[in-house]
Each structure stands twice: as C-alpha cells, then as structure tokens.
Design a protein around this nucleic acid. Structure first.
Length: 305
DNA sequence: ATCCAGGAACTGT
DNA sequence: ACAGTTCATGGA
C-alpha cells in the first residue's frame, strides 16, 4: 500500500490503471444505497476502526486519492487502517496491465476496457457484508434487494449524524447472531434468507468462518468449495464473494443474470446467451474473469435501450 | 395480469 | 448424477 499521512488528511497512491471518477459512477448506481453517499464529486463513507466511527470524505487529486475527516482526525493508527480499508475497497493490490492486454485482443472486452479504463472492482472488504448482500440479491430484482439492505442496515447497523445527514455502518455479525428469523421476516426477508443470514452470523461468532481462514486456502477451487458447504451459498454466491471480498480475479459467477443481460445488450443478441455460449466468449479470459464480469456489469448502467 | 429477478435447497428419479 | 419443483416477493 502506498500512502502518505498528513495528520489532518491522508493521501493514497493507487497503481497506474486507476480512474476515481469511473469508480464513482459504479458506486452511484443506486439511489437507495445507504452505506456511502456521493456529493459534489466526493465520496462519503463511515468506517469503524479501533471501536470508533470515522467519517471519511474521499476525493481525487492529481491521480491520487485524498481522504479527509470532516468530523475529526483520528489517531495515526486509525488513519492507517482507514487507508488500508480504502486500498482494499478499490481493489488497489491488483495490477490491471494483464487484464487490459488480454482485453485489447478480445472481441467482447475490447470496447469495454477502453471505455471504462481505470475502473476497478468495487469490493466489499467485510466478509459478513459481502455474504449477506449476495444472499439478499439471490433471485430478486436489484431494486428490491436495495430496499431490503436499507431496512436491514437501518434496523441493525450503527450510525452517526453529521450536519443533518445520517451515515450508516453495516450491521455486525455479533448483532445479527442475536436475533431470530422472525425479526428479519418483519423486514420482508423470506424465511430462507433469514435463516441463511442468521446461520452465517452464528458461524462467524464461533470463529469457524473468517476471511482469514478462507484466504489461507489460497486456491480458488478450495475457497469455492469451503464457501459452498455453507447452507445458502451456491456457486453464484461463492463466486460473487470471491470476486467482491476475497480479490480472486479468476472468480466467475457465470450463472449471473446481470452478466447474461450485459452480453445480450452488448452483442445485440436476441436471447440471453446460454452457459455454453458464455464459456466460449470467456475462452481467453483466464485469470481475469472477475474483471470481465465487472466491466460487463458496468455496461448495464449506461446502456438503457 | 404476467413474467421474472445479480439462486439455492429440496425432491424424485 | 441429473432434472424438475418449491421457495416467496416486489418491480416493470
């Protein structure tokens, strides 16, 4: 991680292939998002480190990321943790040179890679948040998924109000492990989703499910297998979480409906492609399937036909 | 009203 | 191993 501490603010230096504005477009895709807000080109995000809530104002200057602290500057140790969070959020450990090289010769990715150059996977560094968001998104439309997430966060998350605006933190697994399925049904979660989510929270309380344990496996197949042993996590969810939380560039949620729609629009197909057809398109995406998928998702947000 | 949504578990063969 | 069914509800 490259960063410089200026006490009242910090600066983060991303790798060459980075465009903050492109990332902001993706982050602004839903007007129902509660976990960050975008105002006048700046991104506001509440982060919890060392048991304290820190409001961050994140902007871009001269190819670096500037993080200010509108309420008060945290300790040096906390500032470093904030930098680490943001580094991970924007997937800045990834060197995208290989992806762009491959994309330049790929008929599906060529245009996208050029058009959205510098876009990175916007990650969900917190494992519990990534799992819950994926489960919420299963088999329902995204608008309703955001509604459920908003209710969940506003019911069980911590918050902080500054200058009349309220900023939210995703609920902790400790909190969710202490509620029961009926509580979530009141928010219009289905019984199954409620059970999946609470079971996962309990597994995380026990310490049997952590990001560190998953990353220790350090092998795509092994991680996928461990995730899929958990009730409520199938192939799609496992790949989604590996992509958005575990930084696995080979993760490929091939059954994803958004991916199918993006390919259909982009290629002007009459029907959504089959899995076999997608495998053919993806023949040369080896090692970068997650980025290919993410750029295709991005294309859904400026191509309303 | 009808179809389907950023799926997964369950059931029967 | 594989295919069909059920879960459940809001959005377009």
């Amino acid at each position: 991680m490259k960063w410089i501490d200026h006490e009242s603010y910090i600066e983060i230096y991303p790798p060459k292939e980075f465009n903050f504005e492109e990332c902001l477009i993706f982050l602004g895709r839903s007007n129902q998002e509660v976990l960050h807000q975008i105002k006048e080109g700046s991104l506001y995000k509440l982060i919890k480190v060392n048991e304290s809530l820190i409001l961050c104002k994140i902007g871009s200057i001269n190819h670096s990321i500037k993080v200010e602290f509108p309420i008060s500057s945290p300790s040096i140790d906390s500032r470093k943790k904030v930098a680490e969070y943001i580094w991970e959020w924007f997937d800045l450990d990834q060197e995208l040179g290989g992806f762009y090289q491959l994309a330049g010769q790929d008929k599906v990715l060529k245009t996208l890679a050029h058009k959205y150059y510098g876009l990175r996977i916007l990650c969900i560094p917190d494992l519990f948040e990534a799992l819950v968001w994926a489960i919420i998104g299963q088999q329902i439309n995204l608008t309703f998924a955001y509604t459920l997430k908003k209710r969940f966060v506003e019911q069980y998350g911590e918050s902080l109000t500054f200058e009349g605006e309220t900023f939210w933190l995703f609920p902790s697994f400790e909190k969710i492990a202490s509620i029961n399925a009926d509580d979530l049904r009141k928010l219009q979660f289905t019984n199954r989703k409620a059970e999946y989510i609470i079971d996962i929270a309990k597994a995380m309380i026990n310490g049997g499910l952590t990001k560190e344990l998953l990353l220790q496996k350090n092998d795509y197949q092994q991680i996928q297998k461990s995730l899929m042993m958990i009730r409520g996590i199938g192939a799609w969810t496992a790949d989604y979480v590996m992509m958005k939380c575990l930084h696995q560039a080979s993760a490929f949620p091939i059954a994803d409906v958004g991916l199918h729609n993006a390919l259909k629009n982009l290629l002007g197909l009459k029907e959504k492609p089959t899995i076999e057809e997608i495998e053919e398109y993806a023949e040369n995406w080896g090692g970068w399937q997650a980025y290919a998928t993410f750029y295709l998702w991005r294309s859904l947000y400026d191509k309303k036909i």
